[in-house]
C-alpha cells in the first residue's frame, strides 16, 4: 500500500528531516532472529524497513548480502516463510512501511499474481526488484501497481536525463538512487556528486528520492541526508550482525543489539541534519 509510504515520508518532512531506510535479509541468520531484528528496527529509529528476499545468485550484490542470502537459504528460508515473517511483523506494527527487495526469479516461480496477492495480504507495501528495468515492466511492475503495491525503481549514475522519464514512468512510493556504479556494500560514494544527482532526479519527479549503496556510518548518513529525502543502509547492518555470529553462523546474545546499535547511530546521523519542514 503506497499510503503507508506516503504517510511516513509526510511524517519525516513534518519533523524536518530525512527518512532512514534499513535493509536486512529475511531468515538471516535464522527466521526468528531476523523477525526480532525487523521488529527492533523502527524502535531504534528506522522509518522504512526493507526485507531481503534471499536468492542464490544476487548479481548486483556485494559479498555481505550474498553471504546473508546464503545463510538464510541454508536454514531453509523461502518466499512463503518470508511473507509469514512480514505477516507477524505487521500484526504488531501497522505503520512502518515494509519493502521487499530481491531478484525476479523466486517471484516468477511463485507466480506473479499469487505473489502479489499474498504479499499485499501479508502487509508488504512496495517491491524493489533489481533485475527488472523499465524494459520489462510488463513482468511485475504494472501488475504490482494494479494490485496496489508500489514498484520502487532504481535510478543509477548511468541513468541519464534522456532515460530518466522511462525509469520514473511507472515508479511509485519513492525513487531509490543508487549512489555508485557498482554492487552493494562496496565503494563509498562522493557525497557532493550524490547531492547533484538527487537534485537532477527531483527535477523530473515529485516522489521522494532516497539514496543507498556505500552508506556505512552515522556521518555518511548525515552527509547523504543533506540532499536526499531518505538514506538506505544495508550491507553495514548485515556486517554488524555477521560480526556477532558464532562459528556455525548462529545468532548469539548480542546479535539483535549489534544491529540496533548501528541503526541508532544512523538515525542520529539522519536527525542531525535539519531540513525545511514541508508546508
Amino acid at each position: 500500500m503506497t499510503q503507508r509510504i506516503e504517510a511516513r515520508f509526510q511524517k519525516c518532512r513534518a519533523e524536518g528531516r530525512a527518512a532512514l531506510v534499513t535493509y536486512v535479509m529475511a531468515g538471516d541468520p535464522d527466521p526468528e532472529t531476523s523477525l526480532e531484528i525487523l521488529k527492533s528496527l523502527p524502535k531504534a529509529g528506522a522509518d522504512i524497513v526493507e526485507f531481503g528476499l534471499p536468492f542464490t545468485d544476487p548479481m548486483a550484490d556485494g559479498p555481505a548480502i550474498q553471504a546473508a542470502g546464503l545463510r538464510a537459504l541454508k536454514v531453509g528460508q523461502d518466499t512463503v516463510k518470508t511473507l509469514d515473517l512480514i505477516r507477524r511483523f505487521r500484526a504488531e506494527d501497522q505503520d512502518t512501511p515494509v519493502i521487499l527487495m530481491g531478484y525476479f526469479n523466486p517471484i516468477f516461480v511463485y507466480g506473479v499474481d499469487r505473489f502479489l496477492a499474498d504479499a499485499r495480504q501479508a502487509g508488504v507495501d512496495g517491491l524493489i526488484v533489481v533485475d527488472l528495468p523499465p524494459e520489462e515492466d510488463d513482468e511485475l511492475c504494472l501488475p504490482a501497481l494494479k494490485a496496489g503495491l508500489a514498484f520502487i525503481r532504481l535510478a543509477t549514475p548511468t541513468t541519464d536525463d534522456k532515460r530518466l522519464p522511462a525509469v520514473l514512468a511507472n515508479t511509485a512510493g519513492f525513487v531509490y538512487y543508487v549512489s555508485i556504479t557498482g554492487i552493494t556494500g562496496a565503494a563509498t560514494p562522493d557525497f557532493g556528486k550524490v547531492a547533484t544527482a538527487v537534485e537532477r532526479i527531483k527535477r523530473h519527479t515529485p516522489l521522494p528520492v532516497v539514496v543507498g549503496f556505500g552508506v556505512k556510518s552515522g556521518a555518511h548518513a548525515a552527509a547523504v541526508a543533506q540532499g536526499a529525502d531518505g538514506v538506505v543502509v544495508g550491507s553495514a547492518l548485515i556486517d554488524a550482525l555477521k560480526g556477532t555470529l558464532d562459528a556455525q553462523d548462529r545468532a548469539t546474545a548480542g546479535s539483535v543489539e549489534a544491529v540496533t546499535k548501528l541503526v541508532k547511530e544512523l538515525s542520529e546521523g539522519v536527525r542531525s541534519v535539519a531540513k525545511r519542514a514541508a508546508a
Binding site: L132, P134, E136, L154, T158, T159, R163
Partner: peptide
C-alpha cells in the same frame, strides 16, 4: 525487438547496465 524468442530471452538486468 525486445529480445524475445517466444516467452524466452529478454533483458533482465540492473538499471546500471541498461544504458550499456
Amino acid at each position: 525487438e525486445r529480445g524475445h524468442f517466444g516467452q524466452f530471452g529478454g533483458r533482465f538486468v540492473a538499471e546500471t547496465l541498461m544504458p550499456n
